[in-house]
Design a protein around this nucleic acid. Structure first.
Length: 842
RNA sequence: GCCCUCGUGGUGAAAUUGGUAGACACAAAGGACUUAAAAUCCUUGCCCUUUUGGGAGUGCCAGUUCGAGUCUGGCCGAGGGCACCA
């Protein structure tokens, strides 16, 4: 038996991958296959292996099917870890990043990916961020950039500002430090200008997971309602309320405002109010914290005038469940038809009036009911709205409100502007300067790039750019007057919002991208990455594409990513020693009883549930070690088998070992078939038919991302070969079909596939095996024979046989004939190529 | 609390979209080969029956249907998202 020497094979074929690319330049069909580029953290992890293997399968498959394929890779190279590493190791962020990039690039090459490295882009490269600065200035000139003084989320550990989206449960999403509120002048992208368009655009994205679209939709959070102005007795102030249920206005029994509402300034010196405010702050602002929190309010003793019910006064409360940054920070409460309002009204013994009913003849007693009624129904107790349904009532009351100039129809979005300022060094400098008169202007484009200074001191706290005097102090080109550079750098999400455009023409120096090439390659046909980017990165990129298009109407693309696939995580069991310390799988061994123990001292190990690989739990497997032990093809093969790509996968050494064994078997099979001589051919037709059927199935499966099913089908093909080796089948037939199998394997396990094809003497290795549709028609199918819906036999027949012929077959069938002959058959259900079902009266 | 997704053998999972449930693989048990081990190959895998065969069965309970893992309603459980969104 020839041993598979995967090291030699992989080295041999990787040298050809260097120059071989996936371009079919004459092809009319293009395919842009993109995987989310990695952050150069130092080494690749299994998540990368899974992501890039899936991408490589798609890219190679599309190429073999005649597409002109763009398959680039780059580095999301700015970001805080570089600064942290610099402090720890006394290594400049640039050096640290460069080192990591070259290491990870070397590792990625070991995987045998079909990446065109000539297109490599790194966001920390001034050749890249120069253009980002240009884009920033364009956006500024278009009015898409704003400067706002605002409360920001200040991460005390990272000494930087976080976007709202980057705060998780009141903590920094990276550092985990408790976020403080701080007021700073910040740069913002006006993403809210595009709220409606970003929402509408989701409908076009047919090849996106429904889940991601729903998440984005909820994030944008459009709600239609109206604003209503309430006069407040005794003070010279109004309260403007936003509601999505103006139809329930006649059921209003109170007003509630946020603790941050301007009207609360009246109580700034009120001791009991301040006590209440502190109570509210204690609960926090996260949904989780508030979910179980009791609804509490502060009675202002103020009264608002009901706009439609003469003489009716509504008490005004400050309530902990009203947020200032949504709507107007004030609501009217209609307890019968809103759960929170009902809870609140019960606590403070406020009126509860039913105004919408699904059964008007039976009034409900909400004092006793626990749940508010939020469904549709007929309006009652509502003056001129009575008898209408909810939708009709809404439009009628809005018209009335507008007529009386009490307010107007309004659409509110939940989406907030994107804060892009970061007070840190390792990011793209914002190309703005502050003049002595206080104005802030862009630098002249001819001065770009504004390079990051390299001589910085990272050991002091805060932003090193702030203290770099020679960099900070500059001149205004137009007037020659002294100026100070903006020391904030851009959020790294900006870097990744347009890298896919740069990949289309990374060589171009004069502009961010060559529009002709962008218009050819864009949109990305298949984008592949983790679900963790479902909202932020994808939404920001969608915003960028729109803003760029507004800036340059030659750009044709609106949506950057036509197809999106989000792969699941790679998981592994977790291990703890007797002291509760996490252990790496390499420190643990399984004995013959199936128990785990620590290798170093033979002590017993507690096995925890399988969780996504993370450094903190030490349940990580190093991809390079795996590649060294089993080969890149086995690692790729295993990570694609077992679980559907969108679901989490359990890494197991048994699994990768099985993959390795299978590839050895494939290699042996090629050796055997290659040497075999046989002219007997009685099984040839049947064999051709079956292989053709598999090629057809597999082609469909790849297009549907059912890659685990492809793996299973390949095992079946192998078993089929094994079964037929000793049968009367010609060596020619075996060889031709084996070549087909090897071609199928190219996208999955490219090294061994090419090696075997070379062994078999196949020269034509660029095309996917052809599917013969005439053979598909001749395929045999299995038809189930049922009696009263229960399967009694399965027969193998040719496709397309009609009912009468099948009935005849059944009457001759030993297992069936006794059950149907001389019985009163009341009905026969026949589905061609599937089943025949005899219904027999008892 | 709201939104989304998902419940199939010991395990990871298939199932032509309403038509053979458990393909394929891992693990296990038994066997073959071998002096032995490794490797390889074969068999088994719920209940009844000696076999042929029959029955139950896709979280639970109903329903629709000739036929339900798939559709409908109601429970139960797990995972994910969330900014109380008025």
């Amino acid at each position: 038996m020839d041993r598979l020497n995967f090291q030699a094979i992989e080295k041999k074929w990787q040298s050809t991958f260097k120059t071989e690319k996936l371009y079919n330049k004459k092809s009319a069909k293009k395919f842009y296959c993109l995987e989310m580029f990695p952050y150069p953290s130092g080494k690749i992890h299994m998540g990368h292996v899974r992501n890039y293997t899936i991408g490589d399968v798609i890219a190679r498959f599309k190429f073999m099917n005649g597409y002109n394929v763009l398959h680039p890779m780059g580095w999301d190279a700015f970001g805080l870890p570089a600064e942290n590493a610099a402090k720890e190791n006394n290594l400049h962020p640039k050096e640290w990043t460069k080192k990591n990039i070259s290491e990870m690039k070397r590792q990625l090459k070991l995987m045998g990916l079909s990446i065109d490295w000539d297109l490599e882009v790194s966001t920390c490269d001034e050749k890249y961020y120069k253009h980002q600065q240009e884009i920033f200035i364009d956006f500024y000139n278009k009015g898409f950039v704003k400067r706002k003084e605002n409360y920001v989320n200040w991460d005390p550990k990272e000494q930087t500002v976080l976007a709202n989206e980057q705060v998780v449960n009141g903590r920094g999403w990276r550092s985990g430090a408790v976020v403080e509120r701080k007021k700073l002048s910040q740069w913002f992208f006006d993403i809210t200008k595009f709220s409606e368009d970003l929402l509408q655009g989701l409908d076009e994205l047919k090849n996106w997971p429904e889940k991601v679209k729903i998440m984005q939709k909820n994030w944008i959070g459009k709600s239609t309602g109206c604003e209503i102005k309430f006069n407040i007795d005794g003070v010279n102030q109004n309260i403007n309320v936003f509601t999505t249920r103006p139809d329930t206005i006649f059921g209003a029994s109170f007003l509630a405002v946020s603790v941050d509402h301007p009207i609360c300034k009246n109580f700034a010196n009120d001791e009991s109010y301040n006590k209440f405010k502190n109570e509210c702050l204690k609960v926090g602002t996260t949904e989780e914290a508030l979910a179980n929190a009791e609804k509490i309010g502060f009675n202002t003793k103020l009264f608002a005038t009901h706009p439609f019910i003469k003489g009716k006064k509504l008490p005004v409360y400050v309530a902990n469940f009203i947020l200032m940054d949504y709507g107007t920070g004030a609501i009217f409460g209609c307890p019968a038809h809103d759960q929170r309002d009902l809870d609140f009204a019960k606590k403070y013994k406020l009126e509860i009036k039913e105004v919408v009913s699904d059964n008007p003849s039976k009034p409900k007693n909400f004092d006793k009911l626990l749940e508010a009624y939020v469904g549709d129904g007929k309006m009652i107790n509502s003056d001129f709205l009575n008898g209408l349904n909810v939708e009709q009532a809404k439009s009628k009351i809005i018209k009335e409100i507008e007529k009386l100039k009490l307010g107007e129809k309004k659409i509110t979005f939940r989406l907030k502007d994107w804060g892009i300022s970061r007070q840190r060094y390792w990011g793209c400098p914002i190309p703005m300067i502050h003049l002595e008169d206080g104005s802030i202007v862009p630098v002249d484009k001819s001065e770009l790039p504004i390079k990051l200074p390299e001589d910085i001191d990272l050991n002091q706290s805060g932003n090193p750019l702030e203290s770099h005097k020679s960099w900070k102090n500059t001149f205004h080109k137009k007037t020659g007057k002294p100026a100070i550079r903006e020391t904030d750098t851009l959020d790294t999400f900006v870097d990744s919002s347009w890298y896919f455009l740069r990949f289309c023409s990374p060589e171009i120096k004069s502009e961010p991208f060559d529009i002709k090439k962008v218009n050819y390659w864009m949109p990305v046909d298949q984008y592949i990455g983790g679900i963790e980017h479902a909202i932020l990165h994808l939404l920001y990129s969608r915003f960028f594409m729109r803003a760029l298009k507004k800036n340059n109407n030659e750009i044709k693309t609106n949506e950057p990513f036509k197809g999106l696939f989000t792969q699941g995580m790679v998981c592994h069991e977790t291990y703890k020693d007797k002291n509760g310390k996490w252990l790496n799988p390499s420190e643990v061994e399984k004995n013959s009883n199936g128990k785990f123990f620590k290798i170093s001292d033979k002590s017993e190990v507690k096995v925890g549930p399988s969780e996504s690989m993370s450094k903190s739990k030490k349940n990580v497997i190093d991809p390079e070690n795996m590649i060294k032990s089993y080969g890149a093809d086995a690692v790729r093969w295993f990570i694609l088998s077992d679980s559907p790509p969108e679901k989490d996968i359990q890494w197991s050494n048994q699994g990768v070992n099985a993959a390795y064994n299978f590839l050895q078997k494939i290699y042996n099979l090629c050796n055997i078939v290659n040497k075999k001589v046989s002219n007997k051919n009685s099984f040839d037709k049947d064999f051709d038919l079956k292989i053709n059927s598999y090629v057809n199935k597999i082609t469909k499966s790849i297009n549907n991302f059912n890659l685990n099913v492809v793996v299973a089908n390949v095992y079946e093909i192998y078993n089929l070969f094994n079964d037929h080796l000793e049968k009367d089948i010609s060596d020619k037939c075996l060889k031709l079909n084996l070549i087909k199998l090897m071609k199928i394997l190219i996208p999955f396990t490219p090294h061994i596939a090419y090696e075997c094809l070379e062994m078999l003497g196949e020269k034509e290795i660029k095309n996917w095996p052809k599917i013969d549709n005439s053979l598909i028609l001749k395929e045999k199918i299995k038809l189930a024979i049922q009696i009263n819906g229960k399967t009694r036999d399965i027969i193998e027949i040719e496709k397309g046989i009609d009912q009468i012929t099948i009935e005849k077959l059944c009457k001759k069938n030993n297992k069936i004939k006794d059950k149907i002959l001389n019985k009163s058959i009341s009905r026969i259900i026949f589905v061609q190529n599937r089943i025949i079902n005899f219904i027999i009266k008892k």
